[in-house]
């Protein structure tokens, strides 16, 4: 089954689909942490409204890859072009790109000294200069979307993990981003809270948001993803449409990884 021919075919397909409507283009990108070569020759194009799930063993560079897209990490070689702007050391470009890219972290990273509402309005007020009243209306709209408007005046420390992660999603959405990055959004959650967060993410996907999600939630990948990417040791090993990816993995390392996450 694992014939190199069809692998080459898929890759060619993906290559050829690169074009005008790519919102993210990563070309021959490398990154090092000191001497450690953490990302190796990454090539990836993502279309508007495309939903990508990234998986791979711990330490394979998944977080680093998506953090390069909004410059939380700096790459040392190659190109990253987001929404038509290339990421360079130019602070203005970094600012422009960060306006279009929202990120949701594994550990939520809410601001514990601010109420939920203040967490949500901070960005609109200080970065987008939205009047306070308008920002609050916007915040309430997104809190309703993630189904916790009644928690607006509480502090993050008073919420459950699932609620906190939904606040974090709403906080990113308040900045009206074109792209949303998710770095293992459910892996710090107790099992009974995973679904409420995934439900919100599925709804978000239905609105047509461009999403890159680092996650090992196979159910989510199958329902939502247009493409699943498998990374190992800093390289993209394999990418495919989800059913094909899970049912017919081609590369040995992918097979081994899938067997591990299925049999734990």
């Amino acid at each position: 089954m694992a014939d190199t021919e069809s692998l080459a075919e898929t890759t060619a397909q993906i290559e050829s689909s690169k074009g005008e409507d790519d919102i993210i283009q990563i070309v021959a990108m490398h990154k090092w942490f000191g001497e450690f070569h953490v990302l190796k020759d990454i090539n990836l194009s993502i279309k508007v409204q495309e939903r990508i799930v990234v998986c791979g063993p711990s330490g394979s560079g998944k977080s680093t890859l998506i953090r390069c897209i909004n410059r939380l990490e700096e790459h040392q070689k190659g190109q990253i072009i987001v929404n038509g702007i290339e990421l360079t050391n130019d602070l203005k470009n970094i600012d422009l790109i960060r306006r279009e890219v929202g990120i949701v972290f594994q550990h939520f990273n809410l601001f514990p000294h601010l109420t939920v509402l203040e967490n949500l309005t901070l960005g609109p007020i200080w970065v987008r200069n939205t009047p306070k009243k308008e920002a609050e209306e916007l915040a309430m709209k997104y809190l309703e979307r993630v189904k916790i408007p009644e928690q607006a005046l509480k502090f993050p420390g008073q919420l459950s993990g699932g609620q906190q992660q939904r606040v974090a999603i709403a906080r990113s959405l308040c900045m009206n981003p074109k792209i949303m990055l998710f770095d293992e959004p459910t892996s710090a959650l107790d099992p009974e809270m995973i679904k409420e967060v995934l439900d919100v993410m599925v709804e978000l996907a239905d609105t047509g948001m461009t999403m890159i999600v680092v996650s090992h939630e196979m159910g989510f990948a199958k329902t939502v993803a247009d493409r699943v990417i498998f990374m190992d040791a800093g390289e993209i090993i394999e990418q495919n449409e989800p059913h094909e990816f899970f049912d017919n993995p081609r590369h040995d390392r992918t097979k081994m990884f899938l067997s591990q996450i299925l049999h734990h």
Partner: peptide, 9 residues
């Protein structure tokens, strides 16, 4: 710091 940076502050 990361959340603040990502927000564009």
């Amino acid at each position: 710091y990361e959340a603040a940076d990502a927000m564009g502050l």
